[in-house]
Nucleic acid binder design. Sequence first.
DNA 1: AAAAGTAAGTAAGTTTTACTTACTATAGCG
DNA 2: CGCTATAGTAAGTAAAACTTACTTACTTTT
Lengths: 196, 196
Amino acid sequence: MKEKKNGPPGRIKIMKALSDLIKQKDFHSITTAEIAFQAGVTEGLIYKYFKDKRDLLYTVLEEYFDAFREYIKTEVATRESSTEKLEVIIRTNIESWSENRVFARILLLEVRSSPDYYKSRAYELVKKYYQTIVKIIEQGMEKGEIRRDIKPEILTKEILGAIEHSCLGDIIFERSIDVDLICDNICKTVFRGVMP
Amino acid sequence: MKEKKNGPPGRIKIMKALSDLIKQKDFHSITTAEIAFQAGVTEGLIYKYFKDKRDLLYTVLEEYFDAFREYIKTEVATRESSTEKLEVIIRTNIESWSENRVFARILLLEVRSSPDYYKSRAYELVKKYYQTIVKIIEQGMEKGEIRRDIKPEILTKEILGAIEHSCLGDIIFERSIDVDLICDNICKTVFRGVMP
DNA sequence: AAAAGTAAGTAAGTTTTACTTACTATAGCG
DNA sequence: CGCTATAGTAAGTAAAACTTACTTACTTTT
């Protein structure tokens, strides 16, 4: 069903090497020489498979995001109402970042600053994820489960932003994430608001 | 009242130069040679006043954030209830980013990936801003204006995250920001929730 | 089975760019 | 005046990203 396997061993080793190095330090401080050494290949090979150092980063992110979307999709499918679906998305999202720090760090900290990330396939996947949430909200509005006087696109961004920022500190400073606490707080405020 | 003026002309010109260049391209694509040329000074002078290229960036951000906090403070002072205060923070924050794109781009896109940003004075200011909001929420809880079953810290992050992510796309792709629309959406959901 | 073609990988550059070092001009001040 | 501190320069260095030209090995074709 997959169009292509992961490719030649060198390519796989390079991606694995970067992924491992990001556990230890930020992308900017990782050199191509280091990546090559860690992968057990020579520097030039990186440029055989990737346009440049950043393109390698986007490709690593792409893989993580693919798995993430696949997982979210199966979780969402088990729920009926749109609010339940949103809740499971919030929880699964936080959980994924809690368990996969490399994924979270690349997505939240490393890629956003470079213009050509927004031309990458990784970013296309991010947009698809965003669209999934927009559609759930639209369906919720049609079914009368969600108020109609707000824009689905903005609500989507609000939810994603709330999740992101709530986890950001823990991701940056490598603290453990209290998934239940954050999820519970976000769900309470998103669904019922801050009023007593 | 200010401890020191902005410093020698060269220093000011360098900061202005980076600020102007960030209007056109991302920080990584800006070279120190370019900054020096734009400022009409020589490259070495940058390193007389700043530890490294990134330190210059943090210092530029620091200036913007100082002005931002000053402005927010006066706006908040005009409001009485904590929800009104939160509302004015949300609006002023969005407005500031809408009007000052360089500020927004540095803060949301450029600095977060580097570990030493979190040791900078700019980051100290960010934390102070965050604490200001936490206190407003705590006061709101004491006065019974805000529900007590959520953590003020997480709610703060939720609000900041919602603002950020709602503006992010427009900031990245240099579109105009519909301040009223975003502000209205965020206030509605934060205060009353998404339920109909 | 020999020839031809291609994919995987290497070794040794080149170029760019952030950062250094050693120096000069100028202005304030006892 | 001479001394010191400040503002600034010019030329260089080191390192890191990226290139180029080549080798090896494995398929495919005739």
